[in-house]
Computed example of a mutant assay.
Amino acid sequence: METNFKTIVLSDIHLGTKGSKAKEVVRFLKQYQCENLILNGDIIDGWQLKKSGSWKRKHTRVFNRILKMIDCDRTKVIYLRGNHDDFLDQVLPLEIGNLSIRKDLIYESNGKKYFITHGDVFDNITTHLRWIAYLGDMGYTFLLWLNTRVNHYRRRKGLPYFSLSQYVKSKVKSAVSYIDGFETELCKIARSKGCDGIICGHIHKAEIRTIEGIEYYNSGDWVESLSALAEDQEGNWQLIYYNELDFGKVKPSESKVIPLKEPITRPLDKFS
């Protein structure tokens, strides 16, 4: 199994919340090596930390692992802000060595250009009412709480894991309509910027497909799907699901120095 990639994209880890799978993130990052690690928004959940969230040692270990990748493997780390970590707006843009923090970027690889953004720009297109986003967050938090109870019962009965929120998304017409609109609109944004594809997160739905000639990639999340996007040296992208990995066959990556390469980003104008 391949363990060395050119680029890995993670999004929606939501550190600071009960639902965040921080231990799994650390274990995942120990198995793989990459030249570029893109943290595509909602890595820290500032919204929940302001309300009822709490920061645990396991959340700190995620950043300890990322810093080790920078120090030992010379991994270039790009942290893009999402709507839940919008507190980063106070320091954007910021670049320190192999770590940069910014709003979005254009990634160029193997002759193709990808616009990478968390995806909450779609919410700005459809509505400027911030309270709607908070209301949606409250509903999702409740579904996660209920999902924990449901799966506790299912485990006792010997039944497999069931994602309540994913089920609701697939059945509720408004949710399906939102996702379809989200994917289509982001592809339009990518095309307007002269890009071949869009890489995003935000809606917690991992996906790889083509929409009207634009490559649409969504890295999913680390609350339920536990998924990541990975690009090999030939420019081929794939989704990796933590729950499908056989860690007995995946050898942890050994730290070694990777020669520094040219930065993969270039400045972008802010959205008007």
Rank of each mutant, 00 (worst) to 15 (best):
M69N: 08
M69D: 11
I70H: 09
I70N: 09
C72Q: 15
C72T: 11
C72D: 14
D73S: 13
R74H: 15
T75I: 05
T75S: 06
K76T: 13
I78M: 10
I78Y: 11
I78S: 14
I78L: 13
Y79I: 01
L80H: 02
L80K: 01
L80N: 01
R81Q: 01
G82H: 02
G82M: 03
G82L: 00
G82S: 01
N83W: 01
N83D: 10
N83S: 06
N83L: 01
N83M: 04
H84W: 02
D85G: 03
D85V: 01
D85E: 01
F87K: 04
L88S: 01
L88K: 00
Q90W: 11
V91K: 12
V91M: 15
V91A: 11
L92Q: 07
L92F: 06
P93V: 07
L94S: 12
E95F: 03
E95C: 09
I96M: 10
G97H: 04
N98S: 13
L99I: 07
L99K: 05
L99Q: 05
L99M: 07
S100M: 14
S100I: 09
S100W: 09
I101K: 06
R102H: 11
R102M: 13
R102K: 14
R102W: 12
K103F: 05
D104C: 09
I106L: 09
Y107Q: 07
E108G: 07
S109W: 11
G111D: 04
K112D: 01
Y114K: 04
Y114S: 02
Y114G: 02
F115A: 07
I116H: 03
I116V: 15
I116N: 04
T117F: 10
H118Y: 01
G119F: 06
D120I: 04
V121E: 12
V121H: 11
F122H: 14
F122T: 08
F122P: 07
D123K: 05
D123G: 05
D123Q: 06
D123R: 04
D123I: 04
